[in-house]
């Protein structure tokens, strides 16, 4: 992976929904290894902001990763690098294995080798789905299990910036800790994480933000 000085920089960004200005970010500068948490009540625009950062909705302003400006590459290429996991999670394959391999069926990852079986098994073990194996049907998973599977799928797709919308909703205490382990090791490998939720449950979070009055601000 091309992870040389991949800082994620947002400057003077306005996220637009139906042409209306929803959320503003004056400046957000995250370095590899950062885990940022955005704490805000529902309806404050957390999901909208994450969608804007992933270019799933339109924005005005400057968005860059490393030396690459968002508008200099196609949206699907940006989304491969800056990947949002939307809430609620949905399965993308009939079995756990098919689901985990689904990102590698996309043209944008044609040049990247898909994860090996051993790799997939070790990831699903570390999020507590190990007893199911790879051939378990995804429609037999509970909502909480599906959330964890979706996070593993997104991690295995190897983004450089991981955007998680409400990752700890629908998840019990034990799974929360398993997830924190996965997220921390992603950050330690040089990834950037931005997650949202009502309260930051992870000790590894090192940057805290909130959205007040339609603007992203640092929290104390």
């Amino acid at each position: 992976m091309e992870r040389v000085d991949l800082s994620f920089l947002v400057e003077g960004l306005t996220v637009l929904l139906n042409g209306r200005e929803m959320v503003r970010v004056t400046k957000l500068d995250l370095s590899p290894g950062d885990i940022a948490w955005i704490d805000a009540p529902s309806g404050a625009g957390k999901s909208t902001l994450l969608k804007g950062l992933a270019r799933l909705i339109d924005t005005k302003g400057s968005l860059s990763l490393g030396k690459v400006y968002a508008e200099s590459i196609p949206a699907h290429e940006w989304r491969r690098r800056v990947t949002l996991l939307p809430f609620p999670p949905v399965p993308l394959g009939e079995t756990i294995e098919a689901d985990l391999l689904s990102p590698y069926k996309l043209a944008v990852r044609k040049k990247f080798p898909p994860p090996s079986k051993e790799m997939m098994l070790s990831y699903i073990e570390s999020c507590g789905l190990g007893t199911y194996g790879l051939s378990r049907a995804t429609d037999r998973l509970s909502q909480g299990e599906l959330s964890r599977l979706a996070i593993v799928r997104t991690l295995l797709s190897k983004p450089q910036v991981l955007l998680l919308d409400e990752p700890t909703a629908n998840i019990d205490e034990a799974s929360r800790e398993l997830l924190e382990g996965l997220i921390s090791s992603f950050a330690e490998d040089g990834g950037v994480v931005i997650a949202t939720g009502h309260s930051a449950p992870w000790g590894s979070v090192n940057r805290r933000f909130e959205i007040t009055g339609g603007e992203l601000r640092g929290a104390t």
């Binding site: 799933l56 989304r79 491969r80 949002l84 939307p86 990102p103 996309l106 944008v108 979706a150 997104t154």
Partner: peptide, 16 residues
């Protein structure tokens, strides 16, 4: 639409 949004977020082209 949830599935389509998830695929797009992973870098799918609109057609995919």
């Amino acid at each position: 639409s949830g599935r389509i949004a998830t695929l797009l977020a992973l870098g799918a082209k609109p057609r995919e």
